[in-house]
């Protein structure tokens, strides 16, 4: 579903930034669902990880989305997003080690410069990271 670029609608990019700002200093997380790599809907999800340096999306929410809500719409997971409140928008070693969805785009929103949040997108497959061009 991924190619050289990923179309992230401007309103979804704005929502990711707003979610990131609302959760800081904790990391926010969520996913974007759609079909054939086209983003249709953004879901803000619960971060169950403790502290401010980790995220783990509530697996109960994922269970419902992956096997009920998304298939009912003909959708699948297109992108997974989380924030880096104090570090750049690039996958950390933890992000790479725990990446288990090779067909999804991993979006990272940095708040390192709070006045200029930024979002970058990557695929992470078997430890190999490739950056995608984000279009809106």
């Amino acid at each position: 579903m991924t190619g050289e670029s990923f179309l992230l609608p401007a309103e979804m990019a704005q929502e990711i930034i707003e979610h990131s700002l609302a959760e800081t200093p904790r990391e926010c997380c969520g996913l974007i669902a759609g079909a054939d790599g086209v983003a249709e809907r953004l879901y803000r999800l619960h971060n169950l990880a403790p502290g401010t340096e980790l995220y783990e999306i509530d697996p109960q929410q994922l269970l419902d989305l992956e096997f009920k809500t998304l298939p009912a719409q003909g959708w699948e997971v297109v992108a997974i997003y989380h924030s880096h409140p104090h570090s750049p928008a690039r996958p950390s070693s933890t992000d790479i080690a725990l990446a288990g969805w090779p067909d999804a785009v991993y979006l990272i929103c940095t708040l390192e410069d709070r006045e200029n949040p930024g979002i970058r997108g990557f695929t992470i497959r078997d430890g190999e990271v490739s950056e995608l061009v984000i279009r809106s």
């Binding site: 990391e27 997380c29 996913l31 990880a49 340096e53 980790l54 995220y55 783990e56 999306i57 697996p59 994922l62 269970l63 992956e66 096997f67 997974i80 989380h82 880096h84 409140p85 104090h86 570090s87 996958p91 950390s92 070693s93 933890t94 992000d95 790479i96 725990l98 990446a99 288990g100 969805w101 991993y106």
Partner: peptide, 12 residues
């Protein structure tokens, strides 16, 4: 039985 790989990571 439902199987779900985690969506997880962090800034470290």
């Amino acid at each position: 039985v439902g199987i779900i790989p985690a969506m997880a990571g962090g800034a470290e």
